[in-house]
Simulated scan of single mutants.
Amino acid sequence: MLKGFKDFLMRGNVVDLAVAVVIGTAFTAIVTAFTTSIIKPLINTMGGAETKGLGFSLRTGTPELTEKTFIDLSTLINAVINFVIVAAVVYFVLVLPIKKIQERRKKGEEPGPAEPTDVELLIEIRDLLAAQQGGQRASSTDVRGPKV
Score class of each variant (00 low, 15 high):
Lys52Ser: 13
Leu65Gly: 02
Glu109Gly: 03
Lys147Thr: 08
Glu109Cys: 04
Ser57Met: 07
Ser74Pro: 02
Ala26Val: 13
Thr28His: 14
Arg105Cys: 10
Gly48Tyr: 04
Pro63Ala: 00
Val21Phe: 10
Pro113Cys: 02
Leu94Arg: 14
Glu120Lys: 00
Phe56Gln: 09
Lys3Trp: 11
Gly135Asp: 04
Leu54Phe: 08
Lys147His: 02
Val31Glu: 12
Ile98Tyr: 15
Ala138Gly: 07
Thr32Asp: 11
Gly4Phe: 05
Gly55Tyr: 08
Val22Ala: 15
Ile81Glu: 09
Gln102Val: 12
Glu120His: 07
Val80Trp: 02
Gln102Arg: 14
Val15Met: 10
Asp72Trp: 02
Thr141Ser: 03
Gly47Asp: 05
Phe34Pro: 00
Val84Trp: 04
Lys40Ala: 09
Gly145Lys: 08
Lys40Ile: 11
Pro63Leu: 01
Met46Gly: 08
Pro41Leu: 04
Thr66Asp: 13
Phe92Thr: 02
Thr35Glu: 01
Ala49Ser: 13
Gly135Glu: 05
Ile77Phe: 01
Ala79Thr: 15
Ile101Trp: 14
Val80Leu: 10
Gly134His: 07
Ile43Phe: 01
Leu65Ala: 07
Leu42Trp: 08
Asn78Asp: 00
Leu65Asp: 05
Ile38Cys: 02
Gln102Thr: 13
Ser140Thr: 05
Met1Ser: 06
Ile85Arg: 07
Asn82Met: 04
Lys99Thr: 01
Lys99Asn: 11
Ile39Met: 02
Asn82Tyr: 11
Glu64Cys: 01
Leu54Tyr: 10
Ala138Asn: 10
Gly145Cys: 01
